[in-house]
Amino acid sequence: MSYTGWILLTASLVGISCGIIGVLLILRRMAMMADAISHTVLLGIVIAFMISESLQGTGMLIGAMLAGLLTTWIVQWFQSKGLQSDAAIGVVFTTLFSIGVILIATSVGNVHLDVNHALMGEISFVPWNLIDVPLVGEVPLAVVLLVTVTALVLMVILLFYKEWKITTFDPALAASFGIPVLVMHYLFMSMVSITTVAAFDAVGAIMVVAMLITPAASANLWTDRLWLMFVLSASFGMGSSILGYVIAIWLNTSISGSMAFATGLIFLFSYVFAPRYGRIAVLKKKRETI
């Protein structure tokens, strides 16, 4: 596949996986947790690198997952002790993230992993870091990682679709049925973590938040059906990845920045023009009732 082809595929996979996860983030009102985890996975990656001396797939995924779970657990612990939830999130993730930054500078330095890369990602390097996949040939590592994670996320969402629905809509009822609400919460946070880390290489920690939240927030304005919200969110994610790439080439600017910007454009469009919940529709309805 061509250089541009790989980049577009990578970007689309980021858009799809983040778009799917984002729906549950929005509906569970956990956008801030995504922000937190997208930063603390850095610590997981750094520690995984220090142990395994490599930036290859599995170790990084496990490291990120553990960091994500650690973040979730500490935040929840603080909340249970009475600390405000947003304060708990703010304190925990900045602290864990800064430990990651310090470790990069002091212990890992000089390798492929640097702070700038971790924050912004560099999708244009993705097609050069190839590995050999049986039957398929040479494929960029990031694509292998993203395909794996997207498939995993899709599988977990589909297998437990009704459990996700009920634990999100009415956790108390779910718990009264004996559905392990807390286990599902941690499972979800693990998925957020691995999705984040898979998207890391392409768009970096900061932009991944845009990919997680904005397409889902846009989709929420277009539909009243959960499954359709998943489909729309994934499509918006993919669409903004591609649109972002086009903008970046056109203006000769940062690809990840343009992709995040494109999610914002799609959201703005949805916010104004969505059929029932868009600004125009809302104002029209208001005028009719008056």
């Binding site: 509906l27 009102r29 297998l159 437990f160 009704k162 459990e163 629905k165 009920i166 999100t168 809509f169 009415d170 108390a172 009822l173 779910a174 009264s176 049925f177 004996g178 559905i179 929420n220 539909t223 009243d224 059906r225 959960l226 359709l228 919200m229």
Partner: peptide, 25 residues
């Protein structure tokens, strides 16, 4: 206790009452 803006309809909410009996998978 719940978010009534959740994207779902009336029939679907009522069916949630059966999720415990329907079981996993």
């Amino acid at each position: 206790a719940v978010d009534w803006d959740f994207p779902t309809n009336v029939l679907d909410v009522v069916m949630m009452g059966l999720y415990g009996q329907i079981g996993w998978l």
